[in-house]
């Protein structure tokens, strides 16, 4: 028997190794931004110590929508219908209020075919993390523009987009999402902080991740390429997510740091970069996005957060236990109830 000491594998606060958070092998292109997002999800759920089987994954159709198979293999997943993941997720999350929903969609899936379900999901504030892996093109059908493509951006074929883009973050802020962020698949640190804040958030988190398509939209003239994002990406702040269990006192220079208290006592720490940005101010968020668009910048970071609005399950006044598994005694009224109704109808 070997006596070589094997270093103990790192486990999280619930005693699971990172392997418990991984999914199947990706079938997306090498270098695809979506794979980075999947990796961040694995890391964040591991580091936050979330039970993987308490998560339910949803997606529509497209490259992005394949990715729920590539993270959290111990969580149930549902790759549904093009543009319709919001309704499937809403149904499931109402049926079992204890599930933590993670939906991965794309720009075509959300902003083109799925814009109807997207905006109504926003209004309902269904508690889940809704990630848009945004690359401005349809990948699986080989490179047509989606509704988030910027005016003037150019396809590989030379076709120029002349229609204005739908800004999913602007929609999300306007219509009721309670945590709205934009990030870049290449910004590991920022995306991690945003995802962790979203995991802690009790409401709908919409995260628009610019996630370049290396095959169809990473060329000169694209506004969703790695190089474009490196040049035009503009972080609003430096983000730190501090879990509730970690009570770290840090010296804070006045005016340099903002803190947002998340549900359950976790904190989001925003360090000023250039300007002071208050993410709880809706109007301010809308103005910042409009200004950035005018200047040709892509603002990243937590654009908006509201921890006070009740989520959909609260509005429905549901019992504490999941509807899905209520026993017969709770869901079938007694014989006397039917007798009473019959009497009234005589």
């Amino acid at each position: 028997m070997s006596t070589t000491a094997v270093p103990p594998k790192k486990t999280n606060r619930i005693g699971l190794e990172i392997a418990a958070y991984k999914g199947g092998k990706t079938t997306l292109c090498a270098g695809c931004g979506h794979n980075s997002v999947s990796e961040r999800l694995v890391e964040c759920f591991f580091e936050m110590g979330i039970e993987p089987w308490s998560v339910a994954k949803f997606s529509g159709i497209g490259c992005s929508s394949k990715s729920p198979a590539y993270f959290l293999g111990m969580a149930h997943g549902f790759n549904s219908v093009h543009g319709r993941a919001p309704s499937v997720a809403t149904g499931a999350l109402v049926a079992n209020r204890n599930l933590l929903g993670v939906t991965v969609s794309g720009d075509g899936d959300t902003a083109s075919i799925g814009i109807g379900q997207f905006v109504h999901m926003l209004r309902r504030n269904v508690r889940q993390i809704y990630i848009i892996e945004n690359n401005g093109v349809y990948g699986l059908t080989k490179g047509q523009f989606s509704a988030t493509a910027d005016i003037g951006s150019k396809l590989k074929t030379g076709v120029v987009n002349d229609l204005p883009p739908i800004d999913c973050c602007l929609q999300a802020i306007h219509l009721g999402a309670t945590l709205v962020a934009r990030s870049f698949s290449g910004d590991k640190r920022q995306l991690q902080a945003i995802l962790k804040a979203a995991i802690a958030h009790r409401g709908l988190s919409v995260i628009d991740v610019i996630s370049p398509c290396v095959t169809f939209n990473d060329h000169e003239g694209s506004t969703k390429s790695y190089s474009y994002m490196k040049e035009h990406g503009e972080p609003l702040h430096e983000l730190d997510f501090i879990p509730a269990c970690e009570d770290i006192a840090v010296e804070i220079a006045e005016g340099e740091i903002r803190e947002v208290e998340m549900h359950g006592g976790a904190r989001l720490r925003l360090k000023k970069v250039g300007r002071d940005y208050d993410p709880t101010d809706k109007l301010n968020a809308v103005r910042a996005l409009a200004e950035a668009e005018k200047e040709g910048h892509v603002l990243t970071g937590i654009l908006y957060v509201d921890t006070s609005r009740p989520d959909f399950v609260e509005l429905l006044n549901l019992v504490d236990e999941p509807l899905a598994t209520l026993p017969e005694s709770k869901v079938r009224p007694p014989r006397e109830a039917l007798d009473q109704i019959m009497d009234e109808l005589r």
Partner: peptide
Amino acid sequence: TGKATFAVIQAEDELASIGMVIGASWAGA
């Protein structure tokens, strides 16, 4: 508790209403 053992959701269209039914049934409702 005074809380509901049911949810009735008026959806935005029939695509969403059947989507929610499929999602909820998948989750066991």
